[in-house]
Nucleic acid binder design. Structure first.
Lengths: 205, 205
DNA sequence: GTTGAACCCGAGTGATTGCTCGTGTCAGCG
DNA sequence: CGCTGACACGAGCAATCACTCGGGTTCAAC
């Protein structure tokens, strides 16, 4: 077993009942997190929401931090899976690639706005130290895709390009969802497509 | 007096001594915030760091939230002033405008990395509801600058362009400072300049 | 010098926190 | 049936929290 799991469980749930209990705790954790934020996500509150005594939490988790870490890890995985699915769908649709991807991302984030808000504005230092943003492991993927489509990249620093593109797209879309600025969906899609697409075309085209 | 100040003071400090006390409280608040984050910024801790009894805090502030709001407001103002100064200096230098501005921003953020980290990763829901990012009031400025330099903007939605540019530059530079990724300073400056400069040139040139 | 307001202290309050542990239930097995 | 171990409960502990308040100190005004 690698010593780098999100956090070791105190007891591994073996029976059906206890596995269901852990599930209820994690679901309750997510629900409390979404409605009250990290500040309001106390152990007693999570236990109550799960219909469970406070002590039960500590049958399976070493401390509060481990619970929230697991909850966040799950939520991020869900979100990433959803985004990946949207990406694939936009690929199949065969639209203009850049704009299609951006639309898919924007819509996925819009649907999960509450989760995005909590994860990106509220997270305290103690949770999720290992990953800074949602998109950490995306960097390598994007770099690979860029290299595959443009093998003649020459002296362009593909890693830097990929890193910057991921941050740009991530934050512009998230900010748009959270701030709900006075800028229409079509307008922001147009501009982002123009900026990113144009840059890619000229830099790697 | 507009009813929208950060938070009304309980008593307005009139004597020299009390003004110094408020100053010590705010300085201590900033220091505690930087070293222990929002989670560790308790009233007792701030009072102790200021060399002041807990009760003294409540002579001048209605509650903890008001103290932290004021501390954050000050810190953000300082940071914005510093960035503005760097911008002006890069203007005087007469370099390539876009790249010079980006260098100035990147260096200012690098110098204040601890503050940037706390403000952008830690802030709880209760503090600073009014402003989502550092750069809120920058949007209008940038939009104005774009319009001034390109009066023939035609049907380009200048507001959307300015909004997106501010978010892009803000987050790419902040992420670079906080993540310290495997991407050199020159590389990220090159790419960001290419993306933003090229986009501006084609869209408004 | 006296007065009274401005100022500051810090022990203490009640609430809430993360977490423990003694008590007990219940399913499965011999 | 009776035993055993996995499982769950929830009152309660120590710590910490934001905040109060009674009383003392300092200082400007007269």
């Amino acid at each position: 077993m690698p010593a780098d799991e999100p956090r070791a469980m105190r007891r591994r749930p073996t029976q059906e009942r206890s596995r269901a209990t852990v599930e209820r705790i994690l679901d309750a954790g997510r629900s409390v997190l979404l409605t009250r934020g990290f500040e309001g996500a106390s152990t007693n509150r999570i236990a109550a929401a799960a219909g469970v005594g406070p002590g039960t939490l500590y049958q399976y988790f070493p401390d509060k931090e481990a619970i929230l870490e697991r909850v966040v890890e799950r939520a991020v995985d869900d979100l990433e899976a959803r985004i990946t699915r949207a990406f694939l769908a936009s690929l199949r649709a065969g639209d203009d690639a850049v704009r299609g991807h951006l639309e898919a991302l924007l819509d996925a984030l819009t649907d999960e706005a509450d989760l995005v808000r909590v994860l990106s504005q509220d997270r305290p230092r103690t949770v999720g130290r290992r990953r800074v943003g949602f998109a950490r492991r995306i960097d390598a993927l994007v770099a690979g895709a860029l290299l595959a489509e443009h093998p003649d990249a020459g002296d362009v620093p593909v890693d830097a390009v990929a890193w910057m593109l991921v941050r740009t797209v991530e934050h512009v879309t998230i900010s748009w969802v959270l701030e709900a600025p006075d800028v229409g969906r079509e307008a922001i899609l147009d501009e982002l497509t123009a900026m990113v697409g144009g840059y890619l075309g000229r830099r790697l085209g």
